[in-house]
Design a protein around this nucleic acid. Structure first.
Lengths: 351, 351
DNA sequence: CTGAAAGCGCTTACAG
DNA sequence: CTGAAAGCGCTTACAG
């Protein structure tokens, strides 16, 4: 059992409160230098560290944050988590990690458990539109920040990218390469990224004067498997698309696998664009053209926004929106994977 | 502010302890059915959930575990974490995640912080041999399990693979393919996996009757960059190796990148074997031959071993050692990546 | 059958 | 200059 204030008090022949004050460097404490000396030595000898649980009960602050995501084995969320920890850890917070696998029920149950644990705040990257769990967070006055996906527009602190713009530049890139039939592996209409990236796609098609064709949109969800399934559907059409914009890199990976299995060459027979620029994207052969977003920065910015709420005690609706940037690789332009590695330009943040 | 026992007691006109007993389904409680009814309704209406911090203080159990790893963006550790959470979450534990980036100082500081927080136990995957932090965990009687790497042989609960055997089968595979000069990207001698996999490599070389050549061993550490650097050194030799066994998949990835940049074909000019079989390994082109270990199971087994210690209150030195299994892909055998093997990997990843 | 009390280990406003 | 007390929100052995 670690040493307690009470035990130290006995050994130093002072009151426990005095030990506490010395340990916490209470500036209002006037104390005989010799007594302070004695206590400080004792503190060092015993390596005293206040019991965080008792401290948390008294102070009503646990210095624990939580990150709730679909799945940490997706590289996107791993990078996001690092951003959060790198932002929060230097300021004394520890971070809990909860995976939902996209299940609203698991999300709900995790949030209840985190609330019972009195975490100081929650970063949520798994929300859907009009998410009951997010509304519950607001109702409970639990400091929270949504990342990547929002729930009710403008109602919560949020960090993400301009998904309409991202969908637009991705699709416009394909238009400019001369593609006339461009398919879209679409996210769900219940998720903000799904709705907005699709809107960007449709906008670019409209701008280009190409005919809109609903048959070119296949809902893939956000999994590699879903991407494979939806791509198979598009690529089996009589008049199949020569290019595909996928709502995420993982769905794009599924599409590439299927294309290859169908004997189609990338990019000659079908060009593919993803979204997020996860580390995997540049390692594929050919490299995956994708919309770069600063994932690590998402996490760090979310941590900042969250700690700000915790420290001021006020809920915030601040939004940090990063500018997405197209990164061209071999999956759309043959030879773009030249050995010389191109670095994505720094993204611009608006706060 | 969430509702407390005291407030509920006032509303139900009973003593707080009675509410607590009803909420916890205390079997020794004899209570008038009508009173119980009244209390249960109140509990439901208010969605009462006991304050976990207060509960933790009283019960001396926080139902929080911690996972300490070098870096969650390494797919190996992401899969490991999932295993832990999947094992611990159904039993009511939440899991904290701490990244050390391989720094002993960060590891130490994280462990101190976790101890102050009174986590019920720690799963540590970043230990070195004779690790002072691990000794500190033992000294503090903090339930802990080491994963993948051990510190002092047999002194702690441990989950891992037979690293000597793994190094042996990987290297023997290259010998059997006819390679006579086989290089090794070696882990550090301060880390158990580094020492043991190297021992397996040396054993296979000795068994085959090939001459041992110290120049064929280059220390890479465990990063992709380290792998690239060390591989460049080996592949620049006059009498360069025709095959390389890398201590982990990530270092193997670094080696492949360098080989390609030097104009060497894989596997024709240089064959490469990794270790761990991270999800990335099967997606590379060519696929990476590697030593498969059940990463998710590592995490789940570690969680089991840890919860066992927590629940019995006794430290354990139990060891769970998995058998490594060679997986042959295109990085050592041309054509091993035949399309027929190329099902999309089972993916539960969402973005 | 239910209540009153002690105590987990802290912090801090108040006394003296 | 330091101590004594209250209280954060629970649980549980003990009383009645």
């Amino acid at each position: 059992m670690p040493v307690t204030l009470k035990e130290l008090a006995v050994r130093a022949r002072v009151h426990p409160s005095t030990i506490s004050r010395v340990a916490n460097n209470d500036p209002s404490l006037r104390i005989a230098p010799t007594t302070r000396q004695r206590i400080e030595t004792l503190l060092r000898e015993t390596e005293y560290r206040p019991n965080g649980v008792a401290r948390g009960l008294k102070l009503r602050q646990t210095f624990a944050l939580a990150v709730v995501i679909p799945d940490i084995t997706n590289p996107f969320f791993a990078a996001l988590f690092r951003g959060v920890e790198d932002g929060a850890s230097p300021r004394g917070y520890n971070v809990l990690l909860c995976n939902t696998d996209g299940s609203p029920e698991r999300q709900r149950s995790h949030l209840h458990s985190l609330h019972a644990r009195r975490v100081d705040g929650v970063i949520l990257a798994s929300s859907v539109l009009r998410d009951p769990s997010v509304r519950w967070l607001r109702h409970q006055h639990i400091p929270h920040v949504l990342v990547n996906r929002f729930s009710d527009d403008g109602q919560d602190a949020f960090v993400g990218s301009d998904d309409v713009l991202g969908g637009l530049v991705a699709t416009r890139h394909l238009v400019e390469l001369g593609h006339r039939r461009i398919g879209h592996l679409a996210g769900k209409l219940t998720v903000s990224t799904g709705v907005l990236r699709r809107r960007g796609y449709l906008g670019a098609i409209a701008d280009s004067g190409l005919p809109a064709d609903a048959a070119l949109i296949a809902e893939s969800g956000y999994t590699e498997e879903g991407g494979a399934r939806a791509a198979e559907q598009l690529l089996s059409m009589r008049d199949r698309p020569t290019a595909i914009f996928a709502v995420t890199d993982m769905t794009a990976v599924g599409a590439c696998t299927v294309a290859r299995r169908m004997g189609l060459r990338i990019p000659e027979d079908v060009a593919v664009v993803g979204y997020n620029d996860i580390p995997l994207a540049s390692r594929l052969v050919p490299g995956l053209t994708t919309v770069h977003v600063p994932i690590h920065e998402f996490g760090a910015a979310a941590a900042r926004l969250l700690m700000e709420q915790i420290e001021t005690g006020e809920a915030s609706r601040r939004r940090v929106i990063f500018n997405p940037q197209l990164v061209v690789r071999g999956s759309t332009v043959g030879g773009a994977d030249a050995p010389v590695n191109r670095r994505p330009a720094a993204a611009f943040a608006t706060e």
